Simulated assay, not measured.
Amino acid sequence: MDDHRAPAHGLRHRRSRLAGFAALGLAGAPATHGAARSRRAPGIAITIDDFDLSNAMLMSGQDRDAAIRATLKRHKIKAAGFVAGKYIDDRLSLPMLSAWSNHGHMLGNHSFSHRYFSGENPDGLMADIARCEQLLSSGPGFRKLFRFPGLAEGNDAAGCDRMRALLKQHGYANAYVTIDTSDWYIDNRLKARLKADPRASVVAYKRFYLDHIWGACFYDGVAQSLFGHSIDHTILLHHRLTLFLDDLLAMFRARGWRLIDAHAAFASSPFALEPDTLPAGQSLLWSLARADGRFGTPLRYPGEDGDYEAPKMDAAGL
């Protein structure tokens, strides 16, 4: 399912990416503080959403999943997968999820229905989470981490607070994203091109994808401004563009980032924070920056979306 963000509901935040952070410098630039922690290169953990095996592109869903796991093994890292229950079937998905667990990867909950959460009916969302948990809880890789579909955590304080209370009551932690992306939109455009011309080259799409992901790493500059140092990040990807996953991980290594296991990122201190902002959600760093109040210029809302990438892809003929 496409990870479309909800409409802005009148909010006036579709401006520059984070104009208030323009002075932070290049994305991913190392911190220059004196402490050893400040000089530590940023870490990046791979987190993959949805697990829709029907969404094949140049390969079957099974082959795509095998390629993901093979790439992670080659780079010696353990990822986290966030499963939307509606995509799970006994024939394909359950053996695949077992393979994830057996190879040491984490599996978290992405709800059964993958519906946008506006803040209304948090008890209904909790029931939907419990329904998905039934599909996952028997595997050794399952962890009580919940990722909100579309990173939408509610538009009103009462609904947001109730949802947070319910998650804690049921033993769940929020599986925050720190580096948000619109990889799903790039995939949609590439699929449309391949449907029209199965022999079309994917090279330009790979270049655009890698540039898009690296551009999203401006969030590490936000982390440096908020905390005084780089952090261990979780990046939002989807079970789609695995043609380019090896290139993506190689890019991070080449640019000095550390590839880390997902459990290490989720155990780091920023992931225990609960930003106080409405609408709640988006990248954890987006929310913390908005709640901080020091930066002045409003952040665009949503933080990332296909609407921002469409004109760039149109201009590039993609």
Rank of each mutant, 00 (worst) to 15 (best):
A80P: 05
D63C: 05
A80S: 05
Q169F: 09
P311G: 04
G303L: 12
E274M: 14
R240G: 06
F295Y: 13
M106T: 13
E304P: 07
D246L: 04
L167P: 09
R69Q: 09
L24K: 15
E309A: 13
Y172G: 08
L273D: 09
G293L: 05
G61R: 00
G215D: 11
D2Y: 11
A165L: 09
F146C: 01
F295W: 10
K168D: 15
A165Y: 08
L107A: 07
A99F: 00
A41S: 06
G221I: 04
G28Q: 02
D211M: 06
M96H: 02
S230F: 09
T71V: 10
G141D: 00
L135A: 01
G108H: 02
R207C: 06
G228N: 04
E309C: 12
I129A: 01
E309I: 07
L248W: 08
A80W: 00
D197S: 05
Y172A: 05
G306D: 09
E153D: 10
D49W: 05
A264M: 12
H4E: 13
R189Q: 11
H229T: 13
D305V: 07
R207M: 07
G281Y: 03
I235A: 00
I186D: 05
R143G: 04
R5S: 15
G34V: 14
Y172H: 03
L273F: 10
A250E: 14
T242P: 06
F82S: 01
I44W: 02
W100C: 10
A67Q: 14
A291P: 08
E120L: 09
R39I: 07
R74S: 14
P298E: 05
Y219S: 15
K191N: 13
G159H: 02
L145G: 04
F112G: 03
A8T: 13
K144L: 03
A36S: 13
S287V: 05
T181I: 01
A316D: 10
A84C: 14
S93Y: 00
D50S: 00
D183F: 01
D128K: 04
M96L: 08
A157F: 12
M57W: 03
D187C: 10
L26Y: 14
P270L: 02
N155S: 15
G61D: 03
L24S: 15
L210A: 04
L92V: 07
K78P: 07
S287F: 07
